[in-house]
Design a protein around this nucleic acid. Structure first.
Length: 422
RNA sequence: GGAGAGAUGGCCGAGUAGGUCGAAGGCGCUCGCCUGCUAAGCGAGUAUACUGGGAAACCGGUAUCGAGGGUUCGAAUCCCUCUCUCUCCGCCA
């Protein structure tokens, strides 16, 4: 959520910055609602001041018959207040609902552009390997090895679900453990294991709701939402808290499955593991001092990259342009891994800083000094990494001409010493 | 699922025959004083949000005692609904 005072005082600048996301940035109506709200508030509150003062006088008088006229008068004032407050509530709700659907302002360092074609490559690591045979896509490798069963996934649940078997299931688990061990052991993150379902408040704080309910899986009674990313529960750990400045940055790493409706992506990536309704991810989440958030985003991105480096998987880092960043993000780096079976780079991590956008929605604050006003922290998060897609990258980059797949050296301890799946 | 108990400020904990309670007291914390160190002691201060005024320091108003409604001139205190926590029983990975 954007700061109301900022919008009030910088309406045109806010519209211009939002406009860089593409589409019409429309803050029309904000000013009218805001003015209406404040005028109602002023009127209601001044009446309450009168009511409070008179009620206090009435309280001091023993014989209420002496103040009967005041009681009657206040009865009318109370009625008037009720009317004003009812309308205020309507205006307030409308204003809140409006603000909750306004996306974050792109950070000044976010490149301008309209689509993914305008994203900017920041750096690349590793060299795509060459194969003396036609490189296969992972779904062929996985099916031939009997470790990925797409048919059975469809039987059990439907399209975009997969059954992992044997070494495939173990490789997924190995990747999860490898990632968590690295981030907690070497990068300073605390491991957390959150609920995989959350309530509406949590989804609203991180920005999935109210605007993107269609993208989520939802339980109706009682109402719960399956998390689309661990970002949601982990960011909400500190919802409505005032953190100690000395504790910042707070860094969490969490493994969770993620559940996404993938509404609007019909026909896209229908083969293989790339786009599933359920997938595993290790997520990194930070709560940082505003002055440190830019640097923390760089560090977090580097932490995610380290996984690919140790797995020796080639990748590139892209700065998403203003038209391609997510609703809540101010700045995003995508890490894209090389997939030889499909001859393309595919997103395997998305690392973003949200500025105070999520913190304001969630009431996550800190104090600069003991006596100063609480300020909003900045939240930062990124995949470290998407596990299913990492498995895809391992299968495709480490495939051999005999159909087997070499296990990267760093994963072998997690695979019971297995060096090759064949 | 059944039966009970509870939810107050950073923490602990008073306050329910409605009335000056944003809320006693204690702890913690901050700033001063004092003690040549440490401990103790003394004094003052110590919530948040919105809103009005002001360049600012700051001053005023309103709201908040789990959440939301209601009764009342007036509610932490009464009524209703919901959420969460705890205890016991049942069931269960």
């Amino acid at each position: 959520m954007l700061d109301m005072k900022y919008i009030r005082e910088n309406l045109e600048e806010a519209e211009r910055r939002l406009g860089t996301r593409g589409g019409a940035a429309c803050l029309d109506g904000f000013r009218a609602l805001d003015d209406r709200r404040r005028s109602l508030l002023r009127e209601s509150e001044s009446l309450k001041a009168v009511k409070n003062a008179v009620s206090e006088e009435i309280g001091k008088v023993k014989d209420k018959s002496l103040v009967q006229d005041k009681i009657v008068e206040m009865r009318e004032v109370s009625g008037r207040i009720k009317v004003l407050d009812d309308e205020l509530k309507l205006v307030d709700d409308e204003l809140q609902n409006f603000l909750l659907t306004v996306p974050n302002l792109p950070d000044p360092s976010t490149p301008l552009g309209l689509s993914e074609n305008d994203n900017v490559e920041i750096r690349a690591w590793g060299t795509p390997g060459t194969f003396n045979f036609p490189a296969k896509p992972h779904w062929e490798i996985g099916e031939e090895l009997g470790i990925l069963d797409f048919e059975c996934g469809a039987k059990l649940a439907g399209a975009r679900f997969t059954l992992y078997r044997g070494a495939g299931a173990r490789l997924e688990r190995a990747l999860i453990n490898f990632m968590l061990d690295l981030h907690t052991g070497s990068h300073g993150y605390e491991e957390v294991l959150p609920p995989f379902m959350v309530n509406r408040e949590s989804m609203t704080a991180t920005g999935q709701l109210p605007k993107f309910e269609d993208y989520l899986f939802k339980m109706v009674d009682p109402e719960y939402f399956l998390i689309p990313t661990a970002e949601v529960p982990v960011t909400n750990i500190h919802r409505n808290e005032i953190l100690k400045k000395s504790d910042l940055p707070i860094c969490y790493a969490a493994y969770t499955p993620c559940f996404r409706r993938e509404a609007g992506s019909y026909g896209k990536d229908t083969r293989g593991l790339i786009r599933q309704h359920q997938f595993n991810k290790v997520e990194l989440v930070k709560f940082a001092h505003p002055a440190e958030s830019a640097a923390e985003l760089e560090k977090l991105t580097a932490d995610a990259e380290k996984i690919l480096q140790l797995l020796e998987l080639p990748y590139r880092v892209m700065a998403l342009c203003s038209g391609d960043i997510g609703f809540s993000a101010a700045k995003t780096y995508d890490i894209e891994v090389w997939l030889p079976g499909q001859s393309c780079f595919r997103e395997i991590s998305s690392c973003s800083t949200f500025g105070d956008f999520q913190a304001r929605r969630g009431g996550i604050r800190f104090r600069e000094d003991e006596k100063s006003k609480p300020e909003f922290v900045h939240t930062i998060n990124g995949s470290g990494l998407a596990v299913g897609r990492t498995l895809v990258a391992v299968l495709e980059n480490y495939q051999q001409d005999d159909g087997s797949v070499i296990i990267p050296a760093v994963l072998r301890p997690y695979m019971g010493g297995v060096e090759r799946i064949s």
